[in-house]
């Protein structure tokens, strides 16, 4: 049980070093909200059900993320601003393997 260090670049281009707990059942979207790195109402709009893509991030450095599930894959197929390294923050459960993760928050809507 430990914290992991993540680099998150917000929508204004500012990079933040944040510490995320692995034992609070949090996902990356919730970490972004808890550090207020994106304005309320523009992130996690659907509550984390992979239904809105407001928490889309681009993965800049991938230390070993879990592969994408079907729901995430289908949502990203319909979302805007999607790149090859797009993931949904709400589907990325904070885990030890995320140490050193670097992401950039995608534009919304």
């Amino acid at each position: 049980m430990s914290d992991v260090n993540i680099k998150i670049t917000d929508r204004e281009g500012v990079t933040h070093d944040v510490v995320a707990p692995t034992d609070m059942s949090m996902n990356l979207m919730e970490i972004i909200r808890s550090y207020e790195l994106a304005e309320e109402g523009t992130i996690g709009v659907c509550g984390g059900m992979a239904m809105c893509a407001s928490c889309q991030v681009y993965v800049i450095n991938d230390p070993g993320l879990e592969p994408m599930g079907d729901e995430e894959d289908a949502m990203l197929a319909e979302a805007f601003h999607v790149k090859n390294n797009s993931r949904l923050g709400c589907q990325l459960h904070i885990a030890d393997a995320m140490e050193g993760l670097e992401v950039e928050i995608a534009p919304y809507p």
């Binding site: 304005e39 309320e40 109402g41 523009t42 709009v45 239904m51 809105c52 319909e78 805007f80 809507p109």
Partner: peptide, 21 residues
């Protein structure tokens, strides 16, 4: 492509709004 929520016209009613609420 689905629906996205917007505060809409209520945003112009002169209500005190903070962080989209």
């Amino acid at each position: 492509f689905g629906l996205t929520p917007k505060l809409g016209e209520i945003g112009n009613w002169g209500l005190n709004i903070e962080k989209n609420a």
